[in-house]
Design a protein around this nucleic acid. Structure first.
Lengths: 120, 120
DNA sequence: TTCATATGTAATGATATTCTTACATGAGAA
DNA sequence: TTCTCATGTAAGAATATCATTACATATGAA
């Protein structure tokens, strides 16, 4: 129950989070829509045709991966609206960059990075 | 039950499949290990410390995404060994490339690309 | 034959993700 | 007050993913 927006993660973990965030058709469309200009969640939900609660969940995932960012604003008529926009991310994925990132992955609970003697 | 290695998929679908394939710590490590040289599945399983059936499953996912490829060979002593190697993939991920790919996503079973009038 | 190596897959369970429905709040307009 | 539009979140069901265990095959060596 911590680190939803973990600011202290290894490059490997950050890459993994970004990849997990992008590995979904809805979220790809969300990023695509926001690449065309910022929008608030209700408007965005209508634009891409999914429910607000669902969009809310996907936006959280994208924001946790730092691929989008949102901030609450007050419209002229006083309505609170949360506008989201894409961050200017740039990920280069090749066998080499993946290999480099994989070296700093923290996952895998039991065992850790060191000590991997095969048994039987 | 079809298209495990779908050769006729849109760029968007291919990107989604590649992203889904990479969005897993084991599979990042598998790609990393193979980037250091080809290997056969039992050897690779020992190298990265996971069970063979599990590795087999992950390799299928990576191969379906065309990130790795394997071919069966016969060792000198007659053992059948399946050697895997990474393909020379290169994915550039930016808001723009994602937006471009998202235009050709086929997913979303009911509704399709067209016809998205809001109800309510 | 038995042991050790390689291959693959089926069955099952444990977790994680995804998605809908329903509810709750706040502010301006009618 | 009531309606509309915005926000968010909780609960539960439906799927998908992940992982282990167990089984099945084939080959060479002891």
């Amino acid at each position: 129950m911590k680190a939803k927006t973990d600011h202290s993660a290894s490059p490997g973990d950050e890459l993994l989070r970004a990849l997990s965030a992008l590995a979904n058709p809805h979220r790809l469309r969300i990023v695509a829509a926001l690449a065309g200009g910022r929008n608030y969640v209700s408007g965005l939900a209508r634009e891409i045709g999914i429910s607000r609660p669902l969009l809310h969940m996907h936006l959280q995932r994208l924001e946790a991966a730092r691929l989008v960012s949102g901030n609450l604003e007050l419209s002229e008529d006083g309505k609170a609206m949360k506008y989201f926009e894409v961050t200017s991310f740039a990920l280069a994925l090749t066998p080499e960059t993946v290999a480099e990132a994989a070296r700093t992955l923290s996952a895998e609970p039991p065992g850790g990075q060191r000590g991997r003697e095969q048994q039987q």
